[in-house]
């Protein structure tokens, strides 16, 4: 494929913003990608530093650098946390625009379509960011528009869509964690949370618990990424219940909460038909940043599960 030379045309206008970043690093704790890899180069601050290096001629464009920039779930928590008011995700989008069509263009966390695609266009219709396109008989992802929300992954009936890099948020990675946790003594429940729910856990440290924990919180970025089989997986692995934590109505950037609510409603009906108490699968909507509300919801859910006991086979 023919490529064009890299020119930071769209990035140029952000020079002053890049000066405004005081590099305090307060964006770290909010970034799911940094929390997954614990490499500073994956934190939002690092992305700005790299782009600065690019504009200053201190760094050469590279696929590696482009891949770091394209690795973003657009949760926007770094923007909300930025003490200098830097519009980080807008800068990342413009950087992706500059890389698009060059030899360095990289996929990052955007989605890819494999050969099982039958071009049913379900993903094209479902994508809230108009990033899925039907071009020359093939479905492609516009890497600039794609915000890695993962909704196309879920809606694909043929499972032909996947995220290029998931940072622990795709189904196989989550299933692995679910399996490993549920093998442990005292494990009872899985809690799925979006990155805006400010889960009540350590940011980047670890401590052996006094007692084995009853539940595990898994951050999957957005309720919109929760596929039905993923929600059922813990229950098939002897979990007592599953709790889904989503944003309040109207507050999800990708309307992922709407989809999660619909999935949970359908699965609860299914559980009922299977003579399993539907209360074992619940969805709660928590205000952004409400750690106490999140913890209270978990405590209430665990109390309910402890009255229900394990699922009888």
């Amino acid at each position: 494929m023919e490529t064009r030379p890299f020119e930071p045309k769209n990035l140029e206008k952000w020079k002053t913003s890049l000066d405004k970043c005081i590099r305090c690093g307060y964006c770290y704790e909010h970034c799911p990608i940094f929390k997954h890899t614990r490499w500073e180069s994956d934190a939002p601050r690092a992305k700005l530093i790299m782009l600065y290096g690019l504009l200053a001629g201190k760094l050469q464009p590279s696929t590696y650098l482009a891949d770091r920039i394209a690795s973003c779930f657009y949760c926007g928590r770094c923007v909300a946390a930025c003490s200098s008011g830097v519009l980080l995700t807008d800068i990342f989008t413009d950087a992706k625009r500059d890389f698009q069509g060059t030899e360095f263009e990289a996929l990052g966390t955007t989605t890819v379509t494999n050969t099982d695609c039958v071009a049913c266009l379900a993903c094209v219709r479902a994508c809230p960011h108009e990033a899925r396109l039907f071009v020359s008989g093939k479905i492609v992802t516009d890497t600039v528009k794609c915000q890695s929300c993962g909704i196309c992954v879920d809606v694909c009936p043929n499972k032909a869509v996947s995220t290029s890099l998931s940072y622990g948020t795709n189904r196989p990675a989550l299933n692995l964690e679910i399996g490993q946790f549920l093998e442990k003594e005292n494990s009872k429940a899985i809690v799925f949370g979006c990155n805006w729910s400010y889960y009540p856990d350590f940011q980047a440290s670890f401590m052996e618990p006094d007692e084995p924990p009853e539940y595990k919180i898994l951050i999957n970025m957005c309720g919109g990424r929760l596929e039905k089989p993923l929600l059922l997986e813990p229950l098939l692995n002897n979990a007592w219940g599953v709790l889904v934590v989503c944003c309040p109505d109207g507050e999800c950037e990708h309307d992922g909460n709407v989809k999660a609510k619909s999935h949970v409603k359908a699965l609860r009906e299914l559980l009922g038909e299977m003579d399993i108490d539907p209360e074992r699968l619940q969805l709660v909507q928590i205000k952004h940043g409400d750690k106490v509300g999140f913890q209270t919801a978990i405590d209430t859910f665990m109390e309910k599960l402890n009255t229900l006991g394990p699922i009888e086979k």
Binding site: I22, R23, E40, S41, I49, G53, K58, L65, R68
Partner: peptide
């Protein structure tokens, strides 16, 4: 990590200064 982009990041902090390590290890 030894990619130039990583080294550039690890050469900065919240100060006005910038330099580069040769390698970053954890």
């Amino acid at each position: 990590k030894s990619n130039p982009a990583d080294l550039y990041v690890y050469g900065s902090d919240s100060s006005v200064h910038s330099a580069r390590p040769w390698v970053v290890v954890r």
